[in-house]
């Protein structure tokens, strides 16, 4: 056993144990770690936002390069602070409207391109898929799965008649997909836990090599 003498390692190990203590119940150690985490992360993000967002995207172009166009985003950004002035707090809706409008405008064509048109191309049957029987069979299975899954989310008809088996096939495909995703992600989470355990047992306590 070769216990670390580094105070920072001790501090990190005690914070890790404090967070783990939440598995038992809420307690003062967890609360301390939680508040410290939130506070330090917020301070870190403020510095990060200044250096990665405000400084390169506003301060340098406006103040150092004298590009006056940047006054527009500056004013829009400052409108967020008008929430503190009751008579003028409706101004905050302008940057919100701008952000939402911009986001929708950017998202709609991108989603149509990546999530619909490219997916259609990847799903449709082509003669080349039937060069081998197994690829042909899987292509048909995928096509049926995609159609049934899309129709599972069809809200304009009751799930009766033909729509009932279609929806059942659709949810079966969804659940198979979710099951695979669950197993894959749990493995990744276990590796995170192993990493933390290695820190405690190797870097802190020196029990394992």
């Amino acid at each position: 056993m070769n216990v670390s003498l580094n105070p920072l390692v001790w501090f990190a190990a005690l914070l890790t144990l404090s967070i783990f203590s939440f598995l038992y119940r809420d307690n003062p150690f967890y609360r301390f770690a939680e508040h410290l985490f939130v506070g330090t992360s917020m301070g870190y993000w403020i510095a990060l936002t200044w250096h990665n967002a405000v400084k390169p995207n506003l301060w340098i172009p406006l103040v150092k390069e004298h590009n006056l166009l940047y006054i527009i985003p500056l004013i829009l950004g400052l409108f967020y602070f008008l929430r503190f002035v009751p008579r003028l707090n409706w101004f905050v809706r302008l940057p919100i409207a701008f952000s939402l409008g911009w986001a929708s405008g950017v998202a709609i064509p991108a989603v149509l391109q990546a999530s619909i048109i490219k997916q259609l191309q990847g799903t449709m049957l082509t003669p080349a898929m039937f060069n081998r029987w197994d690829t042909g069979l899987w292509s048909i299975v995928i096509l049926i799965g995609v159609i049934c899954t899309i129709l599972f989310f069809f809200f304009s008809a009751e799930r009766r008649g033909i729509m009932k088996p279609i929806a059942q096939i659709g949810i079966t495909f969804l659940m198979i997909g979710f099951g695979a995703s669950f197993g894959y992600t749990v493995m990744a989470r276990i590796s995170l836990l192993i990493g933390r355990m290695q820190f405690l047992l190797r870097d802190w306590l020196g029990i394992v090599q």
Binding site: Q121, M124, T126, P127
Partner: peptide
Amino acid sequence: IVSALVIASVLSLVGLTNIWKFFS
């Protein structure tokens, strides 16, 4: 979307393979 998928698959299988390019 479902109709486009079915129609494009049928057309592609009967020899109109250029339909695939429309989705590029």
